[in-house]
Nucleic acid binder design. Structure first.
Length: 507
RNA sequence: GCCCCGAUAGUGUAGCACGGCCCAGCAUCGCGGGUUUUCGACCCGUAGACCCGGGUUCAAAUCCCGGUCGGGGCACCA
């Protein structure tokens, strides 16, 4: 056999697939000496879970090819609806830190107006752009829709330069003139006909004040900057494909190398409403308690809840680069988080709004429970039991008491089995120690806390409400920042010590 | 109205550029069972999809044509 067909004896060299499913290669890598990508958030607040796709995808590829990642604050003047918020310049880097994203360089669009002006003049001189003083509404109905050029389009270059000066010096008021790029009035796509690339705005800018009154539009500023910054690959949402086409038009005029454009579809969460403007309003008005309020779905809020950034990254990467609009559930993030963090999370008892139960005849002075059921080597937690006149007060969840029938047997987890004597004024009598006694009859095993020694806990829920309750005494010594599991309640993270201890519910 | 894009199980995704290895893989959810002193974790099993119609071909999830449905753009927003 060995001589006839030795290859059959050898173990086939199975190519072991990478643990992590790799995304597709970036296109045309050979065209570029280095992968350079950029993150371009509009600074109106921290990054939220919906922005994570853009961030994670770009960061992933930069890391994969050892490239450069540039953070570019897209802080042009915006509009009445889109307003730059100064604190976002700090909140966004904070969000990125959480996600483990490292930007090699930070750039502000609002620092680059002179550059945009320089190219604007050049474009006008080349006859590729013109200053249009038509009313926006009239231009839309009479020219764009019909594909008919307006008179401004055919004005000579000196006249256009003169008009440009008038835009800068204030002769033209807001909305009275704008620079249009000659993308073509005969373009079959009305969206592509001679788009405005610079316009007048007298609004004060939070960073540069009233220094400039002519501001670029996104597609123009990027047409210049993607080249100036040496960007090789662009990954962005598909709502920007028209802008991409306009950028390509600009790159063609100058015969610049064309960065690779890639788009992904819209991402919605079935169980989270994402609105940065609404969140901003609620934070300012104090309805939300801050940018780390879970209702903002900001990175800060996820961090506070103890969501591992790698859970977010994993989910985002799993979505890939598809153009389809998708709707996913936060449950997938939670599922990943559980995988990542369940093993580290110590267990504890927490009872919300406890009802007090009098436990009779128990002859133990403490309970011993495992810190983590899967890792007994991590030791035990002790819950001391104090008796007053031979009586022991135990707090249990109202919903658990409700399900119990008088006379039935139940177990206080890791302590003992009891028979419910009285439900109205809750009283239970010691039945037995062995867990099997309750298992055999299918009785419930519930969590509990002793009245004496427990510590009060405020648990911030995902819907913004805060619930009060008590946790076992040992929680006093649990460090701030600990991600733990309240048994039968869910995972949470302690973010503040004291009385009460404050924790944020994760999932 | 005009232009562009997309369509694989409940949800998401792989495969589609070079048709056969795909009676379609993976994850999650569902269901059943096991284990566990949690409604957590773990283990085993199970169910579930190529939008429709035509064409090309020995062979189509993959190519072509037509349709349907869905999304986006048509701002002096980003």
């Amino acid at each position: 056999m060995k001589e006839i067909a030795p290859e059959l004896l050898e173990q086939p060299e199975v190519v072991v697939a990478d643990e992590k499913k790799e995304l597709a290669e970036l296109p045309n890598l050979d065209k570029w000496s280095k992968v350079v990508m950029r993150l371009a958030p509009f600074p109106s607040g921290p990054l939220h879970i919906g922005n994570a796709r853009m961030v994670v995808l770009n960061d992933y590829y930069v890391k994969r090819y050892d490239g450069t990642l540039i953070l570019v604050f897209d802080d042009t003047i915006g509009s009445a609806e889109k307003v730059v918020d100064l604190e976002a310049f700090d909140l966004i880097p904070e969000s990125l830190d959480y996600l483990g994203v490292k930007c090699h360089k930070t750039v502000y669009k609002s620092d680059r107006l002179d550059l945009f002006y320089k190219y604007a003049i050049d474009l006008i001189k080349r006859g590729e752009a013109y200053v249009c003083d038509c009313d926006a509404g009239v231009w839309r109905t009479d020219h764009k829709v019909k594909g008919i050029p307006c008179v401004c389009r055919n004005l000579d270059i000196p006249e256009n330069i003169a008009r440009w000066e008038k835009m800068l010096d204030g002769t033209y008021a807001e909305k009275k003139a704008a620079v249009r790029l000659k993308t073509g009035m005969d373009n079959p796509d009305p969206a592509m006909r001679d788009h405005v690339i610079l316009r007048i705005s007298e609004t004060d800018h939070p960073r540069v004040g009233s220094k400039y009154r002519v501001w670029p539009l996104l597609e123009y500023s990027w047409g210049i900057d993607d080249h100036e910054l040496g960007i090789s690959h662009i990954i962005r949402g598909k709502d920007l494909v028209k802008e991409g086409k306009i950028e390509q038009h600009i790159w063609s005029i100058y015969d610049w190398p064309q960065p690779e454009l890639m788009y992904y579809g819209r991402l919605k969460f079935q169980d989270a409403t994402l609105s940065k403007s609404k969140s901003g309003k609620e934070v300012r008005e104090g309805t939300y308690y801050g940018w780390d309020d879970p209702r903002t779905w900001s990175m800060q809020s996820l961090q506070k809840r103890g969501i591992d950034p790698d859970a977010v990254r994993k989910v985002m990467l799993d979505l890939g680069l598809s153009l389809v609009d998708i709707s996913i559930s936060m449950k997938s993030v939670y599922a990943e988080n559980r995988k990542l963090r369940d093993s580290e999370a110590p267990r504890a008892f927490f009872v919300q709004d406890p009802v007090w139960l009098e436990a009779l005849d128990l002859k133990r002075d403490h309970a011993e429970l495992l810190v983590h059921p899967d890792f007994p080597e991590r030791g035990v937690r002790k819950i001391p039991l104090h008796y007053e006149n031979g009586k022991l007060q135990i707090g249990i969840q109202a919903s658990d008491l409700e399900k119990l029938k008088s006379g039935s047997i139940f177990r206080l987890k890791d302590l003992a089995n009891f028979t419910l004597e009285n439900k109205k004024t809750p009283q239970a009598k010691f039945h037995s120690i062995d867990v099997n006694e309750v298992r055999e009859v299918g009785g419930p095993i519930i969590h509990w806390i002793p009245r004496d020694g427990s510590i009060s806990v405020e648990l911030a829920m995902i819907d913004g409400t805060k619930v009060m309750g008590f946790a076992e005494p040992g929680l006093r010594d649990t460090p701030v920042g600990t991600f733990l599991q309240f048994e039968r309640v869910g995972f949470a993270r302690i973010y503040e010590s004291g009385e009460p201890i404050r924790a944020s519910f994760a999932h």
